[in-house]
């Protein structure tokens, strides 16, 4: 039963993916400038531009171009990046895991702090714990990531010198692990290369903390609000009247009911974190997808921008799918078809 619902939900995602493909296609065609001119290079004359136009298929009618584009996409040919000279798909495959590893770790860290903080604040509203939560959350969200990032670097690298230099995913003394998933932590653990694992973890600490501080606020706020609602509902009173232990009431009854809006927020935070970590990636010279996209945009690197937009869109579709599935796991009232 449940498996069928999941498959049904997966099928619902297909039109969205098709829409995304159409929009990226139109977007790149609608942008000002002639791609053929860029691809041909600065020194090209009229004839060679025309030649590039023909090889790129740009002289054909739009529907034909679209079919060509889709066929290439399916075959895994997302075009070549001008600035790196590499296939876009290969670039993305190398850089996306770097961004994902950073974002996921940051969110994990953020949840580990924000959810207990929110629960603590909700159990005694108006107390010093509640105020502490509010101060931390406000501070976290009002400091821009590039500032917190540089501050952390200054304190922990320059003054205390307890972390390695904030340049990239691995210090030069370590060797990159064999790429299995592209996540250095996971690859290191899988291959049993604990040396690299530790090295990658050390590099991750500062950027992940920077992002965690920034994403703390919405999660903690939402946890507090939905916990307050859950704690004042009738079934909590029933549980209290039945004499259940405080821990069971708080964790088993209230928190699970409060989790739904938190998961929604988490999905939104993940989306904007993945986009917003451009700044963090720049500060820590992190070879992620955000800095790649900014460089590509500045250089008018069409194929790369197109690939980035498509990859992000697909990622968000997948993310929403996962959130919907998590909903259904938490709340039996939610059917996939509603």
């Amino acid at each position: 039963m449940r498996a069928r619902l999941i498959i049904a939900r997966l099928i619902q995602a297909i039109p969205v993916v098709i829409g995304v493909v159409v929009i990226t296609f139109i977007l790149t065609r609608a942008l000002p400038g002639d791609p053929a001119v860029y691809f041909a290079g600065d020194a090209a004359d009229e004839a060679s531009i025309q030649q590039v136009r023909e090889t790129l298929g740009l002289d054909k009618p739009l529907p034909h171009q679209f079919l060509q584009y889709v066929r290439d996409l399916v075959r895994g040919d997302w075009g070549n990046s001008l600035s790196t000279g590499q296939p876009v798909l290969a670039d993305l495959a190398r850089r996306l895991p770097a961004s994902l590893e950073l974002t996921l770790l940051a969110l994990l860290l953020s949840c580990a702090i924000a959810i207990p903080l929110g629960v603590m604040a909700a159990t005694s509203p108006g107390s010093w714990k509640d105020h502490l939560c509010r101060v931390l959350v406000t501070a976290g969200v009002s400091l821009p990531t590039f500032f917190t990032g540089i501050l952390l670097v200054y304190v922990f690298y320059y003054l205390l010198d307890i972390v390695p230099s904030p340049l990239g995913r691995l210090d030069f003394i370590y060797i990159e692990p064999d790429s299995i998933t592209g996540f250095y932590l996971i690859d290191g653990a899988l291959t049993g290369d604990w040396e690299t694992f530790r090295g990658a973890a050390k590099q991750l600490v500062l950027p992940a903390t920077t992002m965690a501080i920034f994403t703390l606020a919405p999660i903690a706020r939402m946890t507090r609000a939905s916990m307050l609602t859950a704690l004042s509902s009738d079934f909590i009173r029933t549980a209290r009247a039945a004499g259940l232990a405080r821990r069971k009431i708080l964790m088993g009854y209230a928190l699970r009911n409060a989790l739904l809006p938190v998961v929604t927020t988490l999905g939104m935070v993940f989306s904007f974190a993945l986009g917003a970590n451009v700044l963090v990636e720049k500060v820590f010279a992190w070879p992620g997808i955000g800095s790649y996209a900014v460089d590509a945009l500045v250089a008018s690197d069409y194929a790369a921008v197109q690939g980035f937009v498509l990859a992000m869109a697909l990622l968000f579709v997948a993310l929403n799918l996962i959130i919907d599935l998590v909903y259904a796991l938490i709340d039996p009232r939610i059917g996939f078809d509603s």
Binding site: D234, F235, T238, A239, A241, Y253, N257, I330
Partner: peptide, 15 residues
């Protein structure tokens, strides 16, 4: 023991 009005709300909705 105690029983309440609005029985549907008095039970944990997701258990």
């Amino acid at each position: 023991s105690m029983i309440f009005q609005n029985p549907r709300a008095a039970l944990n909705p997701i258990r």
